[in-house]
Design a protein around this nucleic acid. Structure first.
Lengths: 336, 336
DNA sequence: GAACGAAATTAGAGCGTTCTAAACGTGCGA
DNA sequence: TCGCACGTTTAGAACGCTCTAATTTCGTTC
């Protein structure tokens, strides 16, 4: 090994034990906060430990104990702040339970995700959170049989993995009801096409419109800014613009805003606009996008809670949880 | 241990060896891609391995080999896409060199960072990247003596850690020169106060203005949207608005945009505006913020490259690298 | 002061790899 | 036929910790 000179001889429990004049077993007990260690020895050990600059070796610990006390979290896209917020909730819950988090990303590619999952398994994480996974169900079946797994934002059928989702249908209804309550009648939905969550949002929109007694009016799109621009171009060809637009997500809404501005139309003066996801960008003053907000942190916390139930053996059955979104009203939606 | 029933008896090298009728040493050689294993045995071992569903145990491997082949990356703020892009570069470089990345976050708090650093050290990472660290120099001195460390976006003096920075002075000059070349004379800088990188940006602005022969005009602020709003309020009290504003970062610029819009002033009609950092939000059509862009991916790659130099023993001396930013022109800056 | 039980401590065998040094074939030249 | 070199393979001792079972220590009680 080239860097042998770098392999510092770090102090081990043996060294600490020798320095403190006790056995390694006692040192081990001290570092695991065992209650049955005399105060006397405990301080002696701790003093010796930090005199030597001792750091317990997590690899050895994990190997010997068969548990790494680590939960692996796979985030599909690090650039998407959605995941950062979910992660906050997860980290907090995990830390509170005495677990560490091993964070990996799949770089939005299926192959990257599988590689990351394999890495986690080799690191012997005790459980896994898959946030917005793109992998196929069958490809992770073996993993789910080895450790507890929970998926966030997506649910697999026929696989032993728990899931945490947001109720997209309800979210869409929130948007529609809000716009309708402002007096808007012609409410168009630019949808997310094949994107994850697009279908239930569309369905929620259609159902809510029907309930209120308004005609559903869906324009095809996808989860991108370009879809928003295209949607506006499409609408401009009509005799007149709708009262309001409900975009499949915030990106689409940004596209809509830009395209309308380019054409001299104002939001919310000419058209009210509601997005979905409540991304960080939505709240910036020059934008102020009204948007449907998913309880991201809560989803992260819940994901960890589900794993802990499995880890402590409290539950063996699969569980699918659904949380309810809320609407954050800003300046892009106004009375008709 | 409560979850004993979950501690699946995963197959080990021993099992694979038995199944393939060879020694564990041979299995080990196969999994390390040793060249001196006969093709015959290699395939027998590999077949046996995946018949059993064997996954090498990274903990045991790291313990025995004294190297985890893992680089720890500490990201100060997961919500900030800046880090995501830097991480992309780092991950790519690390993977190419056969290293895995252990990603942690400090949640923007110094205490969180120290905890994360300790965790990495306990996991026995071979080297560490600190991206935008907030910790103090002395507090990580011991760590830097144990493993190679590189800091990104900040440099420590008196500590054995390499660093990768962007040249903020040059970046500020880019912004000033751009605005001046558009014919603007009264160019105000709303600065970043005590924030990291604020001082060199301010200095770069002042120097560039002096070079061009224009009077420097700095308004105090910090790296927040609120500072942008406050800056505009400040400017409105003057007899007339400046030709252009160079904001300390994009957040400040968003604040400026919002505040100007509120007061019925248009960008770039009344005032041209340049931000700094080129955040993802800057590029959205309804905003289109001209901004100084740091070569984030390149910075991540370079960070890993520096660590590899240390790991392979090619270099022992500290090295500080500085990369040059570029300007991305969008729609918030226009001729006077 | 002996006996006892509880509390505190320890010896020593793993955990699943890697690594060193030695052993084993095998083919080749003498 | 023997010896030797070379390419393969292996036994067995680490690596630094945890865990079980045993041992020691101690405070009580009789």
């Amino acid at each position: 090994m080239v860097s042998s000179e770098l392999a510092k001889n770090r102090p081990t429990m043996r060294d600490v034990a020798a320095a403190a004049g006790v056995s390694t077993a006692l040192v081990s007990l001290v570092f695991r906060d065992s209650p049955n260690v005399s105060q006397h020895r405990r301080t002696r050990v701790l003093d010796a430990a930090d005199a030597l600059g001792f750091r317990p070796n997590a690899l050895a610990r994990g190997l010997a104990s068969r548990f790494s006390r680590t939960i692996g979290v796979l985030i599909n896209d690090l650039h998407n702040p959605w995941f950062a917020e979910m992660y906050d909730g997860a980290e907090q819950a995990a830390t509170a339970a005495g677990y560490q988090i091993l964070l990996t990303t799949g770089n939005q590619r299926t192959s990257g995700e599988m590689r990351a999952i394999n890495t986690m398994m080799e690191q012997r994480v005790d459980a896994i959170v898959l946030a917005g996974p793109r992998v196929s169900g069958p490809s992770i079946k073996a993993v789910c049989d080895e450790v507890p797994v929970v998926t966030v934002g997506r649910a697999f059928v026929g696989i032993n993995a728990d899931s945490v989702m947001a109720n997209e249908t309800v979210g869409a209804a929130l948007a529609v009801d809000h716009l309708a309550s402002l007096g808007h009648r012609a409410i168009v939905h630019i949808d997310g096409g094949q994107g994850a969550g697009a279908a239930p949002r569309r369905a929620g929109y259609v159902r809510a419109m029907k309930r209120i007694g308004l005609p559903a009016d869906v324009i095809g799109g996808d989860f991108s800014e370009a879809a928003g621009v295209a949607g506006v171009e499409n609408l401009m060809r009509r005799k007149q613009l709708p009262d309001a637009i409900f975009a499949a997500n915030d990106l689409v809404a940004f596209g809509v805003m830009g395209a309308l501005a380019t054409r001299g139309r104002s939001v919310p003066g000419d058209v009210s606009l509601v997005g979905y996801d409540n991304t960080a960008t939505a709240h910036f003053t020059p934008i102020g996008l009204t948007s449907v907000d998913q309880p991201r942190e809560a989803m992260g916390e819940l994901a960890i809670a589900l794993l802990l139930e499995r880890l402590t053996g409290q539950r063996l059955m699969k569980r699918n949880e659904t949380l309810v979104p809320t609407l954050v009203v800003r300046t892009t939606s106004a009375p008709r």
